[in-house]
């Protein structure tokens, strides 16, 4: 499947035009909001996963912590993807040729599938019924995948 035409088209859309033409809008509504969403996303990932790893809030039931963190994870994810689409649209053809962009998209896809298809269903019930090693593996994988999404994102800007 040839994706380049899609990236060429993205730059011609209204969103791509705004981001390309107005540097100030791109930097504040694109980049800065993206980073604020990153704070909330990172917070919700770490609060939940460090709790599952028994590092923080050991005196608060992990079911409550993960449930609440997930609520904010969803909000942050919507915000971070929307601002991400806005940013990518403005420089879409450059993104198409950027290795870190594709690494980030792959990690993002894996992260979303992992959270919604595996982690959430697993943690729905009582955590005491689950094998503690599996819980810790899931928490470590979640931290790793989201930090990888963020780090590869920063490296898009450093490479070409």
């Amino acid at each position: 499947m040839e994706l380049l035409p899609f990236f060429e088209w993205a730059e011609t859309t209204f969103l791509g035009y705004i981001g390309k033409t107005y540097g100030g809008v791109y930097a504040t509504f694109g980049q800065s909001l993206h980073l604020m969403a990153l704070a909330v996303l990172g917070g919700s990932v770490l609060v939940a996963d460090l709790r599952l790893l028994n590092v923080i809030m050991k005196d608060v039931p992990s079911e409550i912590v993960t449930e609440q963190a997930h609520k904010w994870f969803r909000i942050a994810l919507v915000m971070i993807i929307s601002t991400g689409i806005f940013m990518a649209a403005a420089v879409a053809q450059r993104m198409y040729h950027n290795d870190f962009f594709w690494a980030k998209m792959s990690a993002l896809l894996v992260g979303i599938i992992f959270v919604f298809a595996i982690k959430r269903p697993l943690l729905k019930g009582s955590h005491a019924d689950l094998n503690p090693i599996v819980i810790k593996m899931v928490a470590s994988a979640s931290i790793l995948v989201w930090f990888s999404v963020a780090a590869t994102g920063r490296w898009i800007g450093f490479s070409g």
């Binding site: 917070g43 919700s44 770490l46 609060v47 409550i64 963020a150």
Partner: peptide
């Protein structure tokens, strides 16, 4: 940039808790 996730992530949850939007129970 990545420490935004750690530092401001925790800060956001503390502040959101005070405002009643996160972990109200």
């Amino acid at each position: 940039v990545l420490t935004i996730m750690v530092c401001l992530g925790m800060l956001a949850f503390i502040d959101l808790r005070m405002l009643g939007y996160a972990l109200p129970n």
